[in-house]
């Protein structure tokens, strides 16, 4: 119930931010549609721990994002140099390893972070096996038991 209420509040905030017009009619329409969406998602069983993950360890999330941005910038710069280098120094590899996350949300965050970082793309994602395509051998070697893996496990909380 608390989860649905916070879902409702975030939907109303989303409406207000997108519309930017605060006449009584538009606000009422926004609240109305938010309620309808919450009822529909309740019927479809969507606002569960996956669709609206409010249970994550938020302190870890807030420190994870800046760290992820830093990693993205570092590896994007590396890939940029390789793309623009006349000799195109790449050594693509497929790497298979076992992630340490136990929940679906944790696995999805880990796989999405791998894909978001230029130079590595998660190809197959299963609870006990990640198959990752890496642009260079060095990027591929750094994946098993990485800091990203550790941080994603910390996000899962409880």
């Amino acid at each position: 119930m608390a989860r649905q209420f916070s879902f409702l509040l975030s939907l109303i905030a989303f409406w207000l931010l997108l519309s930017g017009m605060f006449t009584p009619f538009l606000i009422a329409a926004g609240i109305g549609s938010a309620i309808v969406i919450v009822l529909l998602s309740r019927r479809m069983d969507l606002a569960d721990h996956e669709g609206h993950p409010v249970h994550l360890a938020w302190v870890a999330v807030l420190s994870y994002w800046p760290w992820l941005f830093k990693e993205i910038i570092k590896s994007a710069w590396d890939v940029t140099r390789r793309v623009l280098h006349p000799a195109l120094p790449i050594s693509p590899v497929l790497v298979e390893f076992r992630p340490t996350q136990t929940t679906d949300v944790g696995l999805v965050i880990h796989a999405n972070s791998i894909t978001l970082t230029p130079g590595t793309i998660s190809v197959e994602v299963e609870p006990d096996r990640f198959l990752v395509h890496a642009l260079t051998r060095e990027a591929g070697a750094g994946l098993t038991g990485s800091e990203m893996d550790r941080r994603c496990t910390a996000l899962e909380g409880n």
């Binding site: 890939v79 940029t80 793309v83 623009l84 195109l88 790449i90 693509p92 978001l116 230029p118 642009l135």
Partner: peptide
Amino acid sequence: FCCVGGIGLMRMPDFYTRMHAASITETL
């Protein structure tokens, strides 16, 4: 950086490596 992604899309040898180039456009 968008242009770098486009150039990589042209230069890379196969589909998977092209995806890496395109992800520069999509992030930085």
